[in-house]
């Protein structure tokens, strides 16, 4: 990157390190941190959406809808989590390909499962065999986001379901007494107030979501774990201009520090948010704020 980097063997320690840390593959390493942040930024709202739909469904007065919501919450919570991550990526991939196969190749008569193979027609392959590399990567990333959203959606549904039930009953009854319909009560009374009750659970979930991001590695994404292993491994002078021993320990130390810092930042931000949401609420926290202000 720097002009003096043309001949690394002659450089001093600091200069060597500055060159080493700005090689192309290191840029990919730094880029993968962005990938993690993007994953979090996309997944969190989608999972929250899934959670909201799940919780609303579980509260529904129509029995089948309620069962569906409860089933979604129960299934995802009962099973070890990585099993889910490993399972969903293959299952979703096959589901999409099967759906496209049925749509695009209706004349195809061979069975899809032949022994231990899963065969769909060439047009139904996802992504298409002819697609460029970035499409494959994006598709993998999309599958990962979707899997995360499904799993964390169930967790969020559980939290929101509890929070909706925690909104004081008297307030809903008051709303009904004023002649609001169920829909109006839900949107004007329950939803605005539930966030405070949901916040402890949701912030816990956010912490867990942060800590779940290294599982991207298991889903075959070139994430920070992948790059830390690649870059840290022993490099001999034959293959690179920057030979070094086994530095994987230091790369993973950097990841550890990254996660600890991120957790600490989130703790501080969520603490601030709790204070904000507690304003004017009929809870101990809200009362303490009112007293402090008075």
């Amino acid at each position: 990157m720097f002009s003096y980097c043309t001949d690394p063997d002659t450089l001093g320690r600091a200069a060597w390190l500055s060159c080493y840390l700005t090689t192309g593959s290191h840029m990919s390493f730094y880029w993968s941190f962005v990938k993690v942040l993007v994953l979090l930024a996309i997944t969190a709202p989608i999972a929250l959406g899934f959670g909201f739909v799940g919780a609303t469904a579980a509260r529904s007065h129509v029995a089948p809808v309620s069962w569906l919501g409860r089933l979604y919450i129960a299934i995802v919570r009962g099973v070890p989590d990585i099993a889910f991550f490993l399972f969903f990526v293959i299952a979703l991939d096959q589901l999409f390909e099967y759906g496209r196969h049925r749509l695009m190749c209706p004349e195809w008569t061979d069975p899809i499962r032949q022994g231990s193979d899963f065969i769909v027609c060439a047009q139904a392959k996802l992504p298409l065999g002819t697609a460029p590399e970035w499409v494959h990567e994006t598709y993998g990333f999309f599958l990962a986001v979707f899997t995360f959203a499904i799993v964390f959606g169930a967790f969020a549904a559980n939290v929101l379901f509890g929070a909706m039930n925690a909104v004081p009953r008297a307030q809903q009854e008051t709303a009904e007494a004023y002649g609001m319909t169920r829909r109006q009560t839900f949107w004007r009374v329950v939803v605005p107030q539930m966030w405070l009750y949901a916040l402890p659970g949701l912030s816990n979930l956010w912490m867990v979501l942060i800590k779940a991001t290294p599982l991207l590695f298991l889903l075959g994404i070139e994430d920070i774990v992948y790059w830390a292993r690649e870059l840290g491994g022993t490099k001999t002078a034959r293959f690179t201009d920057y030979p070094h021993g086994d530095w994987r320990m230091w790369y993973f130390l950097a990841l550890l520090v990254f996660y600890l810092g991120f957790t600490k930042l989130s703790e501080i931000a969520l603490g601030k948010l709790t204070t904000r949401l507690s304003h004017g609420q009929a809870t101990t926290g809200g009362e303490a704020l009112r007293k402090a202000a008075a």
Binding site: P214, L215, L253, L255, L256, Y259
Partner: peptide, 12 residues
């Protein structure tokens, strides 16, 4: 920190 990273770090 994630347990996953802790495993990697400890191993190396």
């Amino acid at each position: 920190s994630p347990l996953f990273i802790q495993f990697f770090f400890a191993y190396f």
